[in-house]
């Protein structure tokens, strides 16, 4: 009985690990080892939390995608990751940045980021910060010195454009 369930979980892994790994790599862009650790953590969490998945709130994939995104962003924001970045002497300008120019965009040619390239630059920055860096709308408004309402409207518009590209 147990063995059969592990087999089902193994199939689940085979079906979704690739897609989830892709989203993790789009968030943790510069550390393959860490991305691999996050993928492992994500699947263990999926296994543990499957009882909290509510079918009425969305598809299984959506639920798993959000687990993967949250875990990646948590890792990105963890102290140990930030320190590792500093040790590599990379510019850590995400928090210091106040104007558009100082925010370096890491738009790689993979996954959702590929779709992002099609958006207008001022929209792309917002989706990048909100979705891939996990900043709240308030944080973004402050960083970019733009009113909160504007941030919100622009993100909504960007998402609507994203939707068109996904169809």
């Amino acid at each position: 009985m147990k063995r059969r369930d592990n087999q089902a979980f193994s199939t689940l892994y085979d079906n979704y690990a690739g897609a989830l790994y892709s989203i993790i790599k789009q968030i943790i862009t510069d550390n393959a080892e860490l991305a691999s650790d996050v993928l492992q953590e994500v699947f263990i969490n999926i296994y543990r939390k499957i009882d909290t998945y509510d079918q009425t709130k969305g598809r299984l994939f959506t639920w798993m995608l959000n687990i993967a995104r949250n875990a990646s962003i948590d890792t990105l924001r963890s102290k140990s990751y930030q320190n590792a970045q500093k040790n590599q002497e990379l510019p850590d300008n995400v928090y210091k940045g106040t104007a558009d120019q100082s925010i370096q965009l890491n738009v790689d040619n993979i996954g959702l980021k590929k779709v992002l390239e099609k958006l207008r630059p001022e929209h792309r920055v917002l989706v990048e910060l909100a979705y891939f860096k996990g900043f709240t709308h308030e944080e973004i408004a402050e960083m970019m010195s733009v009113p909160l309402g504007t941030v919100k409207t622009r993100i909504r518009n960007a998402l609507l454009q994203l939707r068109e590209y996904l169809q």
């Binding site: 690990a17 690739g18 897609a19 790994y21 892709s22 989203i23 790599k25 393959a32 991305a35 691999s36 993928l39 492992q40 699947f43 969305g58 598809r59 994939f61 959506t62 995608l65 993979i110 996954g111 959702l112 590929k114 779709v115 939707r163 996904l166 169809q167």
Partner: peptide
């Protein structure tokens, strides 16, 4: 959700060995 899932599976990457 379906569009997103389809896009994500098209963009799937080979997960690292051993995970």
């Amino acid at each position: 959700e379906e569009g997103l899932e389809k896009h994500a599976s098209e963009q799937a990457m080979q997960p690292p060995m051993g995970v």
